[in-house]
Amino acid sequence: MLYRSLKDTTPVAPRLDWPAIYQRQADAARDRRLKRFFQAGLPAPDSTLAELEFVALDLETTGLSVEVDDIVSVGMVPFTLQRIRCNASRNWVVRPRTPLQEEAIVIHGITHSEVRQAPRLGSIIGEVLDALEGKVAIVHCKSVEQQFLGAALERLTGQRLLFPVIDTMAQERVICAKRPVSWWQAIWGRKPLSLRLPDCRQRYHLPHYTAHHATLDAVAAAELFIAQVQHYIGDEALLRDLWE
């Protein structure tokens, strides 16, 4: 099995000492919600994936620039490698500071009136942190979730939120890079595989979902992660080798 070797692969990112980072953030925290969040801590870095509880996280935003744009919707779903607990999924629509662009409406299907009635992120961020507490977050394309959530908390509390995630996109990039090159590809050059969520899912024979609904995307990312674990990563892999 050519892919087996992937399990013993070197980590995709420099290993950070996340428990220490959490401890520092907890000490620095003045906001009650943040303090509680950091004090709850993280699973042990040498836990195997099989024994962990995860939460898939997806944000929908008004655009891609963390300076200009803002969060409109947060979706989360808790899961283990055995089960995705859709029945415990959460979804929040929030009112962004920047006005909603037409093209964003087209993508998310969230309308102006929905947004006008929605609460500010500040009033629900406590619930978001509670749902995330003590679990490992799974995201597809970490820059969006880490940066937007980090920036939002900095605005709300004055403290930047640093939290570890496992990025299914980064995992997929590693997996694709290790794929054997066929003679065909050797002659014509390797065509880079798309790392978009639906394209990644297709490689694991996962069904097509109507994309860009925060919770549905979270479910989609959770399914993708379980598939990656089953096919390549292995459930004995250690948390410390995967989180970034």
Binding site: R83, V219, I226, Q230
Partner: peptide, 13 residues
């Protein structure tokens, strides 16, 4: 629908 949970199984498992 409200009670649904999801599982994924690689071929052969």
């Amino acid at each position: 629908v409200g009670s649904v949970e999801i599982g994924y199984f690689k071929a052969g498992t």
